[in-house]
Nucleic acid binder design. Structure first.
Lengths: 119, 119
DNA sequence: AAAAGATTTCAACAAGGCTTGAAATGATCC
DNA sequence: GGATCATTTCAAGCCTTGTTGAAATCTTTT
């Protein structure tokens, strides 16, 4: 991922409405959610929601699919994974030992704790 | 990390100058860099750099330490780790199987493959 | 084809961010 | 103390973003 793409993603997530909408879609999983329901859940006027969803979809963080007269939105988890990868790389560039600190930290401790690299 | 804090961090990283400055500081490691050198490296007028560094330090992504008549800036990697943790959690909320995809992806594959997901 | 529903687009305005250069601050050196 | 250097602050102007409500678009229903 290039720097430009990263800033676009960060910009997308820098709005409270957009971050909330994305989190909501992540929680909904593959089922996604139609625009009206998102607007209701967020208590945001439809035109306002549309504005923010457009930004998210332009950045690629959400996908849209027409479903009858509804628009179904889904979170694009693979792009989010790419973003996490980018951040992880930026965090330890030239300093591998920092990566290890990262790997042993709680949030990423989905794998058993290494025996040696205790910080 | 709360949503509000996350949006502040995303906003900090949504500017090309700020993301570049942060990446530069990450690459510099614990040594950090003084303001003048950052400005020179980024080819950005001093007052402009100061504006962006202020945003980064306000968000907590960088720290400042006075050193003689210089200001030495350093990247705050632990906050970045927290941000990565936040994103990772948001990505798999209610969908643990997505977390595993995440954990086995290249950037996070610093630890041996899990046999059973520990909480 | 008309009506009703879901969503987007548009225009207008308010508000905040970015850039630039000059002035101010704070620290060192002589 | 005065000069010099590094950096920040300030103000002005510009540009972009966010909000709102009304109108437009597109789809289904009857």
């Amino acid at each position: 991922m290039e720097t430009k793409a990263a800033t676009t993603l960060f910009e997308s997530l820098s709005s409270g409405w957009r971050l909330e909408a994305f989190r909501l879609l992540v929680r909904q999983g593959p089922e996604g959610m139609v625009a009206g329901d998102i607007a209701a859940a967020l208590d945001l006027p439809p035109s306002g929601l549309s504005f923010h969803l457009k930004a998210l979809s332009h950045a690629g963080l959400v996908t849209v699919e027409q479903e009858g007269r509804f628009q179904r939105y889904r979170a694009n988890l693979s792009l989010m994974r790419d973003l996490i990868a980018y951040l992880t790389e930026e965090c330890c560039a030239g300093h591998p030992e920092r990566c290890l600190d990262l790997a042993t930290a709680p949030p990423l401790a989905v794998c058993p704790p290494p025996e040696k690299t205790r910080a």
